[in-house]
Design a binder for these strands. Structure first.
Lengths: 198, 198
DNA sequence: ACCTGAACACCGTTCAAGT
DNA sequence: ACCTGAACACCGTTCAAGT
């Protein structure tokens, strides 16, 4: 919050931080480059230097989202001990918590239009996927998962986690239900439904 | 395509059909009320009679999406015979096919901002959820699913299906991978991973 | 290298008026 | 009941010009 004019790299960081907050509090429709510039006390054409267009800002936001989600999931896994189901549950809970807090950001991160798009974005999402892959590998080493096709297991786990997260983010599953959902997903994944009721 | 002026209910249907096509071919950013009006040969203020604002049009689109997805999944289930895994796979495949064809529409349908919103929208999505619930009930009656907590199983299945669909829609899973994903999900769900490799 | 200010085309929304 | 046309405020994007 210095009074000095925005120079160096300050504006980019400032715009991104403002955008994150606006996205969280008022949704993606309220996100305009001109408004962000106004908030930053800068002319409406200034953001252009740091984000080529609106889409570039959105990509950068999704990027930040993937990086932060990856960090939070890693932290959750690392503080969950050695037990595989416990680690899986910790990762799932971190994902759901993230989705509940930043629902609009999750929309952005998994939007279809970001298919094979910007390399920076796919790089960030691939780091998250790699973290899930590591978790799968650990589960297989611990004998908690079948030893075949880690790639397919990884995709399936990502699908389950993302599916639960979106259900929570869109309000179709209440936070209370989310815990039960996670528990079911974990037991399904780590031991199969056979362990649950057969 | 009559030459008569747009009256009666024709304009609403026309606008919706145009919007569906634009959404599919050019994405949600290309969807503007003014442009739709232009395509329909009508003044830019005319759509207002049928859609109060842009959000109302988007809600209607999501509504159409849920209704159509439900219909396609029902059809797939009904033509898949009596075997539960076969029905589950047919439903999953129909979902993925829908997502691959209408990726942007799927984004819209499961967007976070449609939380507890318009009653019409939640009604349409609940019909889809009910179809999944029926499938779960069939699976339990056939003894292919554990007899407890059908509600939780339903939510979990919706999460898995939606997760796979979004992975496909966003290009993070190739159509070829989607089949393997579905097969894994089906075997995980219908028999547990224990049946796969243990 | 970074930002400003004017300009352009486009948009959503509103409203008095037409048929 | 449904549509038109003008109007308003806002937006993304471009570009010559400033520091």
């Amino acid at each position: 919050m210095t009074d000095a004019p925005y120079h160096h790299g300050r504006l980019r960081v400032t715009l991104l931080a403002e955008a994150e907050q606006t996205l969280r509090e008022r949704g993606i429709d309220a996100l305009s480059l001109r408004d962000l510039a106004r908030q930053a006390g800068v002319s409406h054409a200034a953001p252009r230097r740091h984000f080529e267009d609106r889409k570039a800002l959105l990509d950068a936001l999704a990027n930040v989202g993937f990086t932060r989600l990856d960090r939070e999931i890693r932290a959750a896994i690392n503080s969950a001990g050695d037990d595989f189901p416990a680690r899986l549950q910790a990762a799932s809970t971190a994902f759901v918590r993230f989705a509940a807090r930043d629902a609009a950001l999750v929309d952005l991160m998994f939007a279809a239009k970001n298919a094979g798009q910007s390399p920076g974005l796919s790089e960030a999402s691939e780091r998250l996927f790699a973290t899930v892959g590591d978790l799968i590998a650990q589960g297989q080493q611990a004998g908690a998962l079948p030893p075949r096709s880690p790639e397919r297991l990884r995709l399936l786990l990502v699908a389950v986690l993302q599916g639960i997260a979106v259900l929570v983010a869109s309000g179709r599953a209440a936070p209370a239900q989310a815990d039960a959902l996670i528990a079911d997903a974990v037991s399904l994944f780590a031991r199969g439904p056979a362990a649950e009721a057969r």
